[in-house]
Amino acid sequence: MIEVKNLTKFYGDKKAVDNISFKVNKGEILGFLGPNGAGKSTTMNMLTGYISSSSGQVLIDGVDILEDPIKAKKNIGYLPEIPPLYVDMTVHEYLNFMYDLKKCKQSRKAHIKDVCSLCRITDVENRIIKNLSKGYRQRVGLAQALIGNPPVLILDEPTVGLDPKQIIEIRTLIKKLGKAHTVILSSHILSEIQAVCDRIIIINKGVLSADGTADSISQSLTNKHRMTARIEGADKNTISDALKTIKGVKYVRADMEREKGIYDYDIESEQGTDIRRDLNSLCTKNGWNILMLQLSELTLEDIFLKITMGEGIVIPKEEQPQPEDNNNGGEK
């Protein structure tokens, strides 16, 4: 549905987006993750034809956004970072305007009504946008993107400014939309991406650093086995030292005093080892109690930090489908 080939964007000398390629299939919800200034919005602006790329190609349903912009844009609903709202219009007037602007074919009244109820803005339909709260404005922005029922939805930080209840509502809505639409969604809220998206792309400093599901990214990032244990019975240094004697343990850290005098120990061991039994017998031998034992996978938060901290790292995509085209994206 969406195909991005070697997309690059220069702002003057600064490379904002560097040679990004990916594909999004129909019905997929793709999460765009990255710290502020990583190039998320720039990429999205290029996908929607708001700005042009310095080189590379964007195909929406097989149509090049720069060669046939009108046809390509017909398939896109876009919610930019700042919703493009005319604040002097009422919600109804505005959606009517967007309906005309997108030259929609659906029956006007029913379609606008549907979109309003989907975004839960029916009760503010006749109010002037200027007087709406940030959350409502955001939802009107989303409604605007849904007008015309475009198969591709590109949403730049759709939940910014919403309260927790609204965030959950919007997420549910996006998930629902994801069944019939192709959705690209950017955010720097990690839990949101994890909750909504089938696939995640992490962008850092304009470079595509990771592409895959949260699990597959975390697997390729780590080759260690991690667990957290809460052990009672001795002071933390004694226990730490004892833990380090278990075969396979590489690293022990105790800095969380969750209960008085009792610490949580983060234990990292080599890949493929399972130290739970050794740990148990060690504690029994010393008369210590294991109050809690938790295997920890890398959370999305860990992945995000790992990838975006310092110089940043790039995870090569394993099942990289070699671009089958003759790679002629360079002349744009």
Partner: peptide, 12 residues
Amino acid sequence: QKTDQGLLTAPV
């Protein structure tokens, strides 16, 4: 008001 973004990404 950044509404030009809406116009420029619409099929016009």
